[in-house]
């Protein structure tokens, strides 16, 4: 490691606040970027699964010969 101590790495001769802030903001944006599609597709799949289940339930409720073909 270039720095002598953890504290030195944190301060970086006065530039620490700038450097660490830049990295922290980048990490935050990237986490949001990657998490958004994961959460959204999880929700979409749940919604679609629920829709299918509801349709199956209404179909079985009507029973065999009366069930509509839609």
């Amino acid at each position: 490691m270039y720095f002598d101590s953890f504290h030195a790495a944190l301060v970086m001769d006065g530039h620490g606040a700038f450097v660490w802030a830049a990295y922290a903001i980048t990490a935050m944006v990237l986490i949001i970027l990657l998490l958004t599609p994961v959460l959204r597709s999880r929700r979409l799949r749940r919604e679609l699964a629920g829709e299918i289940r509801r349709r199956e339930m209404t179909q079985t409720g009507r029973e065999g010969p009366h069930a509509s073909s839609t």
């Binding site: 001769d13 530039h15 620490g16 700038f18 450097v19 990295y23 980048t26």
Partner: peptide, 11 residues
């Protein structure tokens, strides 16, 4: 530039 240049690795 000293240590501030380390931002280059993401910028």
């Amino acid at each position: 530039q000293g240590n501030s240049y380390r931002i280059i690795y993401i910028h």
